[in-house]
Nucleic acid binder design. Sequence first.
DNA 1: GCAAATTGTTTCGCTTCCGTTTCAGTTTCG
DNA 2: CGAAACTGAAACGGAAGCGAAACAATTTGC
Lengths: 116, 116
Amino acid sequence: MSISMRPSQALRLWQQVMLSQVRGGEPDLTMRQTAILLTIYLDPPPHTVRGLAARLNVTKPVITRALDTMGALKLVSRHRDELDKRNVLVRRTVEGALFVERFGDGIVVRAHELPI
Amino acid sequence: MSISMRPSQALRLWQQVMLSQVRGGEPDLTMRQTAILLTIYLDPPPHTVRGLAARLNVTKPVITRALDTMGALKLVSRHRDELDKRNVLVRRTVEGALFVERFGDGIVVRAHELPI
DNA sequence: GCAAATTGTTTCGCTTCCGTTTCAGTTTCG
DNA sequence: CGAAACTGAAACGGAAGCGAAACAATTTGC
């Protein structure tokens, strides 16, 4: 059974979640950064710069810079791949897992609060 | 009857919507910009810089700059309030309405495609 | 063994954004 | 009338983003 919603409900949900994030002072991530973060936390590892760039259809420097920023925020971490030292493996962090978990819970709450 | 979803579904929905936006080459809005845009299109007018700043709990220059960027993208427009010339009224545009409409439809589609 | 290919980062010039402060224009009100 | 209040924008130095191109480090394959 899939999830059904009308476009007006979908937009209202998005607005409420965005407002709660902004008002709560959470990091002001871009859509690209959000896509990268959620891909790292939802898709099975390993995650490489190249793989993420292909998944998002963006260039590699876009991934590098997003990892710089989210790394500074402790949302993800980087580690050299010991088997193929050209690769960088992107890993989850405790802080990032908590952030994503809170984010998901927030969506659920806002969805529940939606008017009919 | 409210909308029910599990956190894992909510996160997967968010990921799929973000991925489709990024891959589709849509403007890479930040959470703040998204919150502003949706507030303008979902909440009843009039919308002023001050009002939006209060709604998002951010400073006025944040709103001014976001309107600069989204104005350049033709997603919103600014007009001086003739009744109180200190105010700037933020208005919707045809392009912005189409963008928001496509966005909402995209969410609905991704929600429908979600695994159980 | 060594050129070619692959990976992720860095550099370039430029744009956008930040928070804070300052400013110009307008309205309010004593 | 004129001072105070209010609104949105501009100025400031700094941080972070962009695409394109060049770059080191590593692996592949002849």
